[in-house]
Computed example of a mutant assay.
Amino acid sequence: MGSFKEATAIEAAGPGEFAADLDAQWAVGTKLHGGYLLAVVARAAAELADHPHLTAVSASFPNAPEPGPATVQVELLQTARSLTQLRARLVRDGQPCVEALVTQGTLVDDDPWWTSVTEPEMPAEQDSRRFPSSAPGNTFEVPILDVVETRLDPAVLDAFAAGEPTATGAISTWQRLADGSEWDPLSLLVALDPVPPVSLELGVFGWAPTLQLSAYIRRLPAPGPIRVRLEAGDITGNRMDETAVAWDSSGRVVGQANQFAGVRLPKR
């Protein structure tokens, strides 16, 4: 098992161009995870930025790349006093796979000036159960769950296993990087695209591929695990919206994301 830093490593390959080696471990089934791909893109974009931290990114995923060699092309759009804005594209075998707009800034770890976001009610990390990469009844393995330790409320897992999902449209998880490294602005992109998706809690099985995703990193996370609450608002026509909020070990919001994902709905 490699580290997140190794899995997202990039090398300069020319002006505004970087080489990456997409890691098959960071996948759901055989498909590379959207948050992981976005982290590779954002790491390359940071190389051309005058500001140190990812603060916002918005991306589309027109093609699902296979693991292996890929290229990230980065264009600097503007540099201002407090931010750098860039455009980045991940290409594999000549096909665009991620198209992103990236904003870099300078994050702090201060308390919020004002917030209306409340922490999720969920069992303590030690009282939660790890979601395995190969669970009974799964039709495919989820390798990313071996590198991102994800723990859920046992009641949610028991209801899922019994075929009686709670169907609230929300799911909360504890997450840690299995390599022991602490969360940072780039790895939070993985956490904000959580596995399992909300559709599992609704009794809908299978992969939920990310079509579009926007993420906002709010502050530098404190050491330790993070909690992520994921909610769906509406599922129609095999499309699902998901809203994620992540809290660090100090109880402060460190990231938020909205995404539009595909889902295969069962017949009623």
Rank of each mutant, 00 (worst) to 15 (best):
T168V: 07
L211F: 02
F260M: 11
P132F: 01
W113H: 13
A59R: 14
F140M: 13
P266H: 05
A191C: 12
G137Y: 02
L37D: 05
T106S: 15
A124T: 04
F160T: 13
P123G: 00
V108L: 15
Q259A: 03
S214V: 08
S82E: 11
M122H: 05
P196K: 11
A39L: 09
A9E: 02
R227C: 08
L189C: 09
S187A: 04
T103D: 10
A39S: 10
T115D: 02
R229L: 09
D21E: 15
Y216W: 14
A45N: 05
P165D: 02
D248Y: 13
E6P: 07
R129N: 08
R219K: 15
A232L: 08
S187I: 10
H33I: 02
P185S: 05
I10F: 06
M122F: 02
P69I: 06
Q104R: 12
M1F: 00
R219V: 15
A257R: 01
T150F: 06
A178G: 00
G163Q: 08
W113P: 01
D127L: 01
V190E: 11
L188C: 08
S199L: 13
H51K: 08
V263E: 02
G237F: 13
M1C: 04
V102D: 04
D241Y: 08
E75Q: 11
A191G: 12
F18I: 14
Q175Y: 15
Q78L: 12
G180D: 03
S199H: 11
V190K: 14
G203F: 12
V147R: 10
W247Q: 08
P209L: 00
L177V: 03
L22F: 01
Q126G: 12
M122R: 05
A159W: 11
F131K: 10
L220C: 13
P221K: 04
L90P: 06
L188R: 06
H53S: 14
V57Y: 14
V98M: 00
A80V: 13
T8V: 03
L202C: 14
P165K: 03
D109W: 14
H33A: 03
D109G: 15
R151A: 02
R89I: 09
P112T: 05
G34Q: 01
F4S: 01
P185G: 05
G137R: 02
S3F: 05
A244H: 06
L177C: 02
P132T: 01
P120S: 03
G255D: 01
W114D: 12
F4T: 01
S3A: 03
L90E: 04
P67V: 13
A232H: 10
G68H: 04
P69V: 07
